[in-house]
Write a protein that binds this DNA or RNA. Structure first.
Length: 404
RNA sequence: GCGGUCGUGGUGUAGCCUGGUUAACACGUCUCCCUGUCACGGAGAAGAUCGUGGGUUCAAAUCCCAUCGACCGCG
């Protein structure tokens, strides 16, 4: 018996889009839904009450970060992630797989969720042998059992295995958590993508086993398996089949893509997923990618872009991204987005927030983060309503026409 | 009046003693970037005829003289 239930209420007629409700022990999530990322048990710059006012129904935090600081025992002692951070709704935790690679091995190097096809192919650093590893300040050593890595905080050595990741995530206590996986660089060759994918499958099996052995956790938490396979459609299909076969409560689509691969790799994975399983698109996204994902049948998303872009001075608007630190916004006294009012930020002008950002005031980052998260949540709300009203394709086309 | 210190991009400084390719650095400015987070970030660009005038020298931000300005001390 799963700790969670998922009900699909409406399917779009001309795409894979669907609207549903995911019910967790801490409340319902109306899908398609966006989970703002609260890595270290906080969505940067936004109070939980404000987050709820913006329309968020679920928050995603991170195993890697909370394990390193303050330690999962503290979060457990607080009564779990939600209680610890003062968020009353559903929560999720990511397994730490992605972070071990993006913050450990590649810390400070060029690695991102998306790669640019025209960018020079930088040597990716995901695997070191012991000898080489010991000479690096940052490292991640993968073996079949798990990953040894150094903390990005103090360089200390740590080790994650699928069982350990599950154990930590049980302590964190989120309603939904993810199996520990290996996230490969898209520059790795096909043979390595296959090898990593198969390793991720073995880890998935072990994660599931570890979860099933904990009766208490099983009653309260749901575990999602992660589909890998890089940009290769055959691997994506195979991975989706394997993950589904294992019997997870839901499925996450992981890995890095190039813009060009997104649709194909996604479609390949989706073709193997049963309808009733909730699907989470890990680390996505940007408005265009979100709509692509929804059209493909994804139910859940999480992404740091909204808050990170906001902190760095970029704002989503109905007409596209704007950079508030640009000269022209110094004396632009118009609203942040004249088309969309985001609760709590309606009264601020571009000139004012531009000034706050330029002068390093934290309120600038807060307002911009709130605006962006509110914008994305509004996009999801609109998409969901459009699906219910049988006009998702039109809604998507309309949005993209205005959003350049 | 005398003695001293200092005048280098928007700001603060380095370089000067031991003259020599496109005068360096920080901050600021401008533009771009950010997708399972490294809060306070990354990349690139623009911007100074080195107070002014003369001199020495193949060559002066750098050495010499004068001059203007700022500051300090003594009258």
């Amino acid at each position: 018996m799963s700790a969670m239930s998922f009900k699909i209420e409406k399917r779009a007629p001309r795409s894979g889009a669907r609207a549903g409700t995911l019910t967790t022990p801490h409340g319902a999530i109306r899908t398609p839904a966006f989970a703002p990322v609260g890595t270290k048990a906080n969505v940067k710059g936004i109070l939980p009450s404000a987050l709820a006012a913006l329309g968020a129904e679920v928050v995603l935090a991170n195993t890697y970060h909370l394990y390193l600081q303050p330690g999962e025992k503290i979060v457990q002692a607080a009564g779990g992630l939600g209680k610890f951070m003062g968020w009353q709704g559903p929560t999720m935790t990511d397994s730490g797989g992605f972070q071990v690679f993006s913050l450990g091995a590649a810390f400070g190097k060029t690695i991102s969720k998306f790669t640019k096809e025209d960018a020079p192919q930088e040597e990716s650093v995901t695997v070191f042998d012991e000898g080489v590893a010991s000479q690096h300040g940052q490292l991640a050593v993968i073996d079949d059992e798990g990953v040894s890595f150094t903390s990005h905080l103090d360089g200390s050595l740590h080790r994650f295995t699928p069982e350990r990741s599950v154990e930590i995530q049980h302590a964190l206590g989120a309603d939904i958590f993810f199996a520990f996986d290996e996230c490969t660089s898209p520059t790795e060759p096909y043979a390595y993508q296959r090898e990593a994918m198969e390793r991720t499958h073995r880890w998935a099996e072990r994660s599931l086993k570890a979860h099933r052995q904990n009766i208490d956790a099983r009653a309260k938490q749901s575990l999602f398996g992660i589909v890998q396979g890089g940009r290769h459609e055959d691997l994506r299909k195979e991975s989706a089949r394997e993950i589904v076969r294992m019997g997870f409560d839901g499925v996450g689509i992981g890995g890095s893509f190039s813009k060009e691969d997104l649709r194909g790799a996604l479609a390949a994975a989706m073709s193997e997923l049963p309808e009733e399983l909730p699907r989470h698109f890990l680390g996505i996204g940007e408005p265009g990618d979100i709509l692509e994902g929804i059209a493909s049948g994804m139910d859940l998303f999480d992404c740091v872009a909204a808050t990170r872009l906001g902190r760095h001075g970029s704002l989503y608007t109905k007409n596209g991204l704007i950079h508030l630190k640009n000269e022209k916004y110094r004396n632009d006294f118009s609203p942040l987005d004249s088309n969309i009012a985001v609760p709590g930020t309606e009264s601020f002008t571009r000139a004012y927030v531009s000034h706050l950002l330029r002068s390093g005031e934290m309120l600038g980052a807060i307002i911009a983060s709130m605006h962006n998260v509110g914008f994305i949540l509004r996009l999801f709300a609109d998409a969901r309503q459009a699906i219910l009203d049988d006009r998702f394709s039109e809604m998507r086309a309309d949005f993209l026409r205005a959003y350049k």
